[in-house]
Simulated assay, not measured.
Amino acid sequence: MTNDGKKEPADEEDGFVEDERGFFAEQRPKSAGLAKAPLASKSPEMHYHGHRDRLRQRFRENGDTALADYEILELLLFRLIPRRDTKPIAKALLDRFGTLGGVFGADLKLLQEVKGIGETVAVDLKLMSALAHRMLKSEIKGKKVLSSWSSVIDYCHAAMAYETREQFRILFLDKRNALIADEVQQRGTIDHTPVYPREVVKRALELSATAIILVHNHPSGDPTPSRADIDMTKMIVDTAKPLGVTVHDHIIIGKEGHASLKGLRLI
């Protein structure tokens, strides 16, 4: 209850999300003839507003380099959770998932295990992650992939590094080595994904692709290729080559980096 006896709306944890600007607007007196509401400084939940203004000013004047990772996350959470001090929530997210990439790559249900993160905020965080993936994908779509290799790695890392299960992705290229399609063909367990070489080549022919790049992730974080990874890659190369489809590389993505089977001279 507020000082004037009105019931406050539920906060984010109860599923309520309100734009911060609307919240501040509600605090202004509706008429000059009415008594002023108690000063905001007397409310224990308003002490962080000055901190929010200072963070915004630092960001406006100096960009993201002036802020720590938890402060960048705070800036985003300001908009998603207007009635809470978001600094402890931002720090709790980073403590749980390690990095900003880990936060945005985390599973929806795992995000909600962090105190202060309800379903609505968790979905919004995943939306931000999807926007980042789309942005990175736009950097390679229709371009000559082999000359934009760092962009390919950045995209694959953002899309797959924090997945909790293995997935097998294929980048399909045309005769100019430009990306024409990007598909997740299989999803597996924490340490295994079934891959069928004939299905890989069949899909390449359906898309009129003349080359492919194989990509899969290691949820353990270590991108070192296994014996099974090497053998499977050779089977796909042997199946694709007689049909005019080139396997440029097989990239393994992990939280700790990536490995290229071509770079390791394993294909």
Score class of each variant (00 low, 15 high):
T2Y: 05
D4G: 01
K6I: 06
K6P: 01
P9L: 08
A10E: 09
E12C: 11
E13W: 09
V17L: 08
V17T: 10
G22A: 08
F23C: 08
F24P: 05
Q27M: 15
L34I: 10
P38E: 13
P38V: 12
S43M: 14
E45C: 10
E45R: 13
H47C: 07
H47A: 15
H47P: 07
H47M: 13
Y48M: 14
H49M: 15
H51R: 15
R54M: 13
L55C: 05
Q57V: 09
N62P: 00
D64I: 15
D64R: 15
L67M: 07
D69L: 05
Y70T: 10
I72R: 13
L76T: 09
R79L: 13
L80E: 07
I81G: 00
I81W: 00
D85P: 02
T86R: 03
P88E: 04
A92H: 02
L93P: 09
R96W: 00
F97P: 02
T99A: 02
L100I: 12
G102W: 00
V103S: 03
V103D: 01
F104Q: 02
A106T: 03
D107W: 02
D107L: 03
L111T: 00
L111G: 00
Q112A: 05
E113N: 08
V114L: 02
K115Q: 13
K115E: 15
G116I: 01
T120L: 09
V123G: 04
D124V: 05
K126R: 13
L127M: 08
A130R: 13
L136V: 03
K137G: 03
E139A: 13
E139S: 11
G142N: 06
K143E: 11
K144Y: 02
L146S: 06
L146W: 06
S147P: 04
S151C: 10
V152T: 11
M160F: 11
M160E: 12
M160K: 07
Y162D: 07
R165T: 15
F168H: 11
I170A: 12
L171C: 07
D174V: 09
K175E: 15
R176P: 11
N177Q: 15
A178N: 14
L179I: 09
V184F: 07
Q186C: 10
I190F: 14
I190C: 09
T193C: 13
P194H: 12
V195C: 04
Y196M: 11
R198H: 14
E199V: 07
V200I: 13
V201H: 04
V201I: 14
R203L: 10
R203C: 04
A204G: 04
L207A: 02
A209N: 03
I212E: 02
G221M: 04
R227W: 08
M232D: 10
M235L: 12
I236L: 03
K241Q: 10
L243M: 12
L243W: 03
T246S: 08
H250I: 02
I252Q: 00
K255G: 06
K255S: 07
K255M: 06
G257D: 03
S260N: 03
L261W: 00
L261N: 01
K262L: 13
G263A: 02
